[in-house]
Structure formats: structure tokens, C-alpha cells
């Protein structure tokens, strides 16, 4: 399994646990803070479900770049960074925004919204070209082979 997929899945598992602990704490100890319910739902649906979908699809969908590293998989890495930065910013800034009227929280909330929407966009940029029929995959592989042969020829 590629490093990025492992990272998505393991981070997703942590959000899964965090979301359920949040739900449990609010039930057992009566811990309540403003924004708890939307935070719980977003940790669960974005932090866990969406994150695991992103990770597994980047790994399992056809046409994966097998080269590791940020440069080779830049859209995937940008998706991971923006999705998680956005979620963490939200987890901190949304409850704090209810407690104190510091304009910094407003900026962080806006930043959280922008980075999460950005993560959706970079994920689409990565995965859209990989949604292919068998015939399209065959043609792409052939094109790549021809390109590689051409490059080798130039190298000689």
C-alpha cells in the first residue's frame, strides 16, 4: 500500500475514534460546548469516511503513479495536507469563536473552509483522469510506452 494511502487511512482511523469519543463524552459526562454537534458530524463524515474514501481510491483506482514522494504525487499530498489542516483548524477555531469574539478565530474559520474546499478540488484533479474504461486504460498505457521509448531513443 502506498505511503499516502496508509497516511489517509491511519489519519481517518484517528478521526473515527476522536469523533466517537466526542459523542461518548457528551453523553456520559454531559460535556457540552458550542459547535459540538457539527464538529462530531464533520469529524465522522469528513475526517473518517471521506478521508478513507480518498486514501483507498488513490490507491485502488487505475493509473496510479507508483513513484513515491511529494513531487510525484503532488495532488494527493496537497489533498491530504489541506483536508487535515482544514479539519484541525475547524476543530480549534469553531468552539473558540463561540467563547471569545477574537477576530483571529474568524480568520481561522475562513481559512479552514477554504482549505477543505481546496482539498476537494485537488482530489478531483488527481482522480478524475483515472476514471477510465479498460479501452482508455489500454490506450493510455500504449501512449506511455511510446513516450518512454521516444525518451530512451533521445537519450542514446
Amino acid at each position: 500500500m502506498p505511503r499516502l494511502a496508509r497516511l489517509f487511512i491511519k489519519t481517518g482511523l484517528i478521526y473515527f475514534l476522536a469523533a466517537l469519543i466526542l459523542a461518548l463524552a457528551s453523553e456520559v459526562n454531559g460535556i457540552q460546548f458550542p459547535g459540538l454537534v457539527p464538529l462530531f458530524w464533520h469529524l465522522l463524515m469528513v475526517g473518517w469516511i471521506t478521508q478513507i474514501i480518498f486514501g483507498v481510491s488513490m490507491w485502488m483506482f487505475p493509473g496510479r503513479n507508483r513513484e513515491e514522494g511529494f513531487r510525484a504525487q503532488k495532488w494527493g499530498w496537497l489533498t491530504f495536507i489541506m483536508l487535515n489542516a482544514g479539519l484541525l483548524l475547524r476543530a480549534v477555531a469553531e468552539p473558540l469563536n463561540y467563547l471569545s469574539q477574537n477576530p483571529a478565530w474568524n480568520v481561522l474559520i475562513a481559512l479552514s473552509a477554504i482549505t477543505q474546499a481546496g482539498a476537494a478540488l485537488t482530489y478531483i484533479i488527481e482522480i478524475w483522469p483515472r476514471i477510465q474504461s479498460k479501452e482508455q486504460q489500454r490506450r493510455q498505457r500504449k501512449k506511455k510506452r511510446q513516450q518512454a521509448r521516444k525518451n530512451t531513443g533521445r537519450g542514446k
Binding site: 469553531e94 474568524n106 474559520i109 473552509a113 477543505q116 476537494a120 482530489y123 478531483i124 478524475w128
Partner: peptide, 23 residues
Amino acid sequence: KASLIYLFAGFLMGAFILVSKAY
């Protein structure tokens, strides 16, 4: 492909709603 379009639309709407909490 349709789900990816909905993903972007859903996240954009979510971002707009989230920003409205601050503004």
C-alpha cells in the same frame, strides 16, 4: 464522476456555511 461533482458542490456549500459562522 457525478459523485466528484457533488463532492465539490457539497464542500463549497459547507465552506460557505462555515464562513457564515464567523461572518
